[in-house]
């Protein structure tokens, strides 16, 4: 978030003052439970204002073999929170001599997101599998509110696909059905959202662990979006040739 006053935004080289724009993951995060686990999908764009800092970012950060966190908001904040939460989760796993539940992990993330809510710009999805509850998905928007979802989207691209997800989700999806929905949703969001783009990354988490997939726009498998084309005969006095 840019909190600088307008009059401070001009660069003053003599004073060595160069206003900076926050580097953030204007993002599309999609996640959905299926009958044996959970699938998450993201875009890969990181930007500072209109500049794309990285076009192949991995926003799916592994926490354990069976848990990932999808990050959105300030890239620095979310990377840092993911590292710290991961450290805490590892320590508790050692102390208690058993893997933490995904719920416990989501609560550990909550503590940081809530306690430092005034200084953070971070929102995450915690997704994973545990023996107690199976595949799970927790959404933690900015501020530290936690909900468990069956299907959710977050980040700037989410507004474009929330309806699509609502229309596609149903109980007991198979892995392949779920993957197809998530991938298509990321494709649709990336198509309409200027702050999302790059490649599509999918992660599938089940009892056996996490598997990651990558879909590049120049290779087969990238989600196709075919919007209806505009009327080329408009305005009528300009002659246009169809592409």
């Amino acid at each position: 978030m840019d909190t600088m006053r307008d009059d401070q935004k001009e660069a003053i080289p003599a004073l060595g003052f160069y206003p900076h724009v926050d580097i953030s993951t204007g993002t599309t995060l999609i996640a959905m439970e299926y009958n044996g686990g959970v699938v998450v999908g993201t875009d890969s764009r990181t930007s500072a204002g209109s500049f794309i800092t990285s076009r192949a970012t991995n926003k799916i950060t592994p926490i354990t073999d069976t848990m990932v966190v999808c990050r959105s908001g300030s890239a620095a904040d979310t990377q840092c929170i993911a590292d710290i939460a991961k450290y805490h989760i590892e320590v508790y796993t050692m102390l208690e001599n058993e893997p933490l539940t995904i719920y416990r992990a989501s609560q550990i993330f909550r503590q940081f997101l809530y306690n430092y809510r005034d200084s953070l710009s971070a929102s995450v999805l915690v997704a994973g599998w545990d023996a107690k509850e199976g595949g799970q998905l927790y959404a933690l928007p900015i501020g530290g509110f936690v909900t468990r979802q069956r299907s959710t989207a977050s980040g700037s691209g989410s507004t474009f696909v929330q309806g699509f997800l609502d229309s596609q989700w149903r109980p007991n999806l198979t892995l392949n059905e779920c993957k197809a929905i998530v991938k298509q949703a990321v494709g649709l969001a990336v198509f309409r959202d200027g702050s999302s783009g790059g490649v599509v990354r999918l992660a599938t988490i089940d009892a056996n662990g996490t598997s990651m997939e990558l879909y590049r726009p120049d290779k087969p498998g990238f989600p196709v979006v075919k919007p209806p084309s505009a009327h080329l005969s408009f305005p009528p006095h300009v002659e246009q040739t169809p592409v």
């Binding site: 208690e96 719920y103 416990r104 609560q107 550990i108 909550r110 503590q111 936690v146």
Partner: peptide, 11 residues
């Protein structure tokens, strides 16, 4: 308070 779940008897 920290984890929003009841503490287990073993812990």
């Amino acid at each position: 308070k920290e984890y929003r779940e009841p503490m287990s008897v073993q812990k």
